[in-house]
Nucleic acid binder design. Structure first.
Lengths: 198, 198
DNA sequence: GTACGATATGGAGATGACCTCCGTTTGTCA
DNA sequence: TGACAAACGGAGGTCATCTCCATATCGTAC
């Protein structure tokens, strides 16, 4: 599926230059406020080259954080393999906040990844979602976590955290969400019948 | 603060026409995909008039749902007055989903309202957030809900729900989030010390 | 009813971001 | 080194947003 024919030397050089500059701009926090064209100039390549390598701003963002997110997924697998399912899930979710907190722009990138469900862009998002799903499933299998609420709900909560990263008390609130989600998951199923308001 | 001098007759007429057409387009679901200029023509007014009345797409969205959100806030107050705090909170949150589910575009509007924290646009968002805060506070006061997680976390969760409204299994997942949040809130504080990953 | 200042209108066009196209340059391989 | 493919770059097309101001309409005082 991923038959990447080797890039020509100059192509690879430009690609790296773009990624390097992108990381720099991300860390400075201004990535999403920068004109995409200006970014090409900043990186020292033409606009056409920029667009050939990264068809959209989101594609570039994904590329920048692809490694990061891959690492998160691997981390999920490692946790799942070494810790009791419940603890693995908890540790992973708390770690997500740390990661988002540590890197400017990752939050917004995640938010974008989670809404975009079409195209190759979503691939990374899917991987992350799969990782979460696996963690939750394992905990359910263990019997420590209710089975009437799916991993999708957890993803939604993460989504909310990512999308709201510019709120004033972000860190504390994000921790609160995870606490609620985790403690909520530990309860037995359907404490109360899901009341629908009339 | 809100010293609105009465609009001239034609101005009021145009404003109403814009709002009416906006509601119509919202219900059809295409509001956010429509060119803003085209919308002016649809409503039968000039672009300038559109922009004078509603400086941005979001301002118009807010105006359309201002009543709706006001109603939600009132509902929150009514529930708080007539039900035990815990039940009031639960009923309100479940009701939120129903509302979002019922109206195309309300979800996206809420998402926008919740991220935008500057300008008059946020006023409505603030009101909604205040309503949630009050409900949570009352439940905390009653001792039925933990006091170590603030209303901000609940808002974040709602945010996630609103922002993700185009996911396939949205309704079920949204219900799941609320279930987790509610059940999470019912647990005593800090079951486990908030572990920070190293 | 009419005259006049205040208020509102409308739509052509400026603005500015995004993206494409294609003539030129650079790398690769025999 | 020649020839072919791959990649470059940036001028310019496209498109949505928003502004500006000459014109029209309203409300009111006379």
């Amino acid at each position: 599926m991923n038959a990447v024919k080797p890039l020509r030397a100059d192509a690879r050089r430009n690609r790296e230059a773009l990624l390097a500059k992108a990381r720099e701009v991300f860390d400075a926090g201004g990535f999403f406020d920068l004109r995409f064209d200006d970014f090409a100039e900043l990186a020292g390549v033409g606009v056409g080259t920029l667009y050939r390598h990264f068809p959209s701003r989101e594609a570039l963002a994904e590329a920048v954080y692809h490694g990061e997110i891959d690492a998160l997924c691997q981390r999920a697998r490692r946790l799942a393999a070494t810790l009791p399912a419940e603890e693995a899930l908890a540790t992973f979710l708390r770690g997500m906040i740390d990661h988002i907190d540590a890197h400017q722009g990752l939050a917004r990138t995640l938010a974008t990844l989670m809404t975009t469900d079409s195209g190759a862009l979503a691939e990374t998002g899917q991987a992350l979602e799969q990782a979460v799903t696996d963690l939750v499933s394992a905990a359910v299998q263990d019997g420590v976590v209710r089975d009437d609420v799916g991993a999708g709900a957890v993803m939604m909560a993460l989504h909310g955290i990512g999308a709201a990263h510019d709120r004033p008390g972000w860190r504390a609130e994000a921790d609160g969400v995870i606490t609620l989600v985790l403690d909520g998951l530990l309860r037995p199923r359907s404490v109360q019948a899901p009341t629908r308001t009339p």
